[in-house]
Design a protein around this nucleic acid. Structure first.
Lengths: 246, 246
DNA sequence: AAAGGCAGTATGTCCTATCAAGAGAACATG
DNA sequence: CATGTTCTCTTGATAGGACATACTGCCTTT
């Protein structure tokens, strides 16, 4: 049917053209201008409508396909998938997640030290023997309710940090300000039973269910920057994600 | 430095050139020929060495960057990141995961019915009122040990299935054979305590920790194909994934 | 000797072109 | 009327060129 979306492309903007197209189509989908299931014009026409070359148009659509918003079929066309799926799991901190949702997280630093890393940490962060790391545990609450108990180890040769900073903002915000560009993280999500140490801090019963996460984050130079072991109250937190088939 | 990798590109192969390059570099990294941290030649030289155009070379490297194996910096070059990170979480079934790891999973179908969907399922699968679905629960064991208890609802207008099939192979294999091309899935991972029903089936104590997963899968036409609620023994299973910053 | 600017190099963006391949409909033929 | 072929539409793959921009290190200048 040829859904001709009228996007405005600003060629003087520093934002790459293909990205402007991505944003435009994304907005059109989320606002309902492009309905789920509807077919888009073919690449060539779309490119012509926006006065772009086909490769540029394709690059934009590529991103949207990867994001799971569009589906392309050779010989057929491109259509909007967009069930109300969430954004694929991104590399963000819990603090960011909560802040973005309008909640006001508070952080209580339970312990903080700058010590020589133990063997496990040396391995996890791939540091030479004798390296020092920041080691701290934090309790995160939202609306006064405990949500997460977090233990982290951070290499100390990137940026310095102290207890006061950690109680004011998220770890990732501090590291990013220190010049760290996160590239990837590997994490493992599981479950466990609250023990005598965790339960009172999280204001939960001993024996109640906790979600566990272990994560190691890598920056764009390949350095392992941070590793941590977090536990969350299962009744208040779960991991949502969208998987895209490639 | 200039690490000149000698890949062989087969122009008569049906495999796209850029993908051959992806596979080649991937293999070189995993086999250690390309060491973590080492720099690659620049795109233009690499393209010349392999007799490819720069866009083709770039497309290959794009994929590797997205996969988290390479890092590019404008004005600097491209280097291998590749800490021993795992492949990003993919849209696969537990059965596939286990089979690929050399395990031999067995499936016991605890219940199977073809019934009218209840309100919750209608919503989850976005089906019109009165639609029928397959509803079944399965117990998956590995090496005789119970691992997962799975309850699923599958729309019936795609392919038919029965108890015998489900006990022989994974749900996703059946659906794929029925012509379903999965595109994306949204899932939520959390934790809970084993109850009186789950514990004996999983041969675990009542009150032990379970990992829970709820998933809804969408095919390439935007149809919600399947939704399910699974629980896993926390001592035998966890979700590993790699997040890539984009 | 320190600071600033400049050039070189690499990736980032964007363009024009062309051929290949899959899907589906129209059409011709037995 | 059924079936197989062909034609057309659309995405997929590849090439090659031009210009923009970020980073590094060297060189000049102060």
């Amino acid at each position: 049917m040829a859904n001709q979306l009228s996007l405005s492309i600003d060629r003087s903007s520093p934002v790459p053209l293909y990205h402007q197209v991505v944003q435009g189509i994304e907005a059109a989908i989320h606002s309902g201008i492009l309905e789920p299931g509807s077919r888009l014009d073919n690449e060539i026409d779309l490119a012509a409508q926006l006065n772009l070359s086909r490769p540029t148009m394709r690059k934009a659509m590529d991103e949207l396909v990867r994001a799971g918003l569009l589906v392309r079929k050779r010989g057929v066309g491109t259509q909007v998938v967009a069930s109300q799926v969430r954004r694929p799991l991104e590399l963000s901190s819990l603090y960011d997640d909560l802040s973005n949702n309008g909640k006001k997280p508070t952080t209580e630093v339970l312990s903080f030290s700058h010590v020589e890393a133990d063997a496990l940490t040396l391995t996890a962060l791939q540091l030479p023997a004798g390296s020092k790391v920041y080691h701290f545990t934090r309790l995160r609450k939202v609306g006064g309710k405990p949500l997460a108990l977090m233990e982290n180890w951070v290499r100390d040769d990137i940026t310095s940090m102290d207890e006061a900073q950690l109680s004011k903002e998220g770890l990732y915000a501090i590291l990013r300000r220190g010049g760290v560009n996160f590239r990837l993280a590997s994490q493992r999500i599981g479950a466990m039973i609250a023990n005598d140490y965790q339960a009172p801090l999280l204001e939960a019963e001993v024996g109640s269910a906790l979600v566990t996460m272990e994560r190691t984050a890598v920056d764009d130079t390949g350095r392992m920057v941070e590793t941590g072991h977090h536990v969350y109250r299962a009744d208040s937190y779960s991991f949502e994600m969208t998987l895209v088939q490639r």
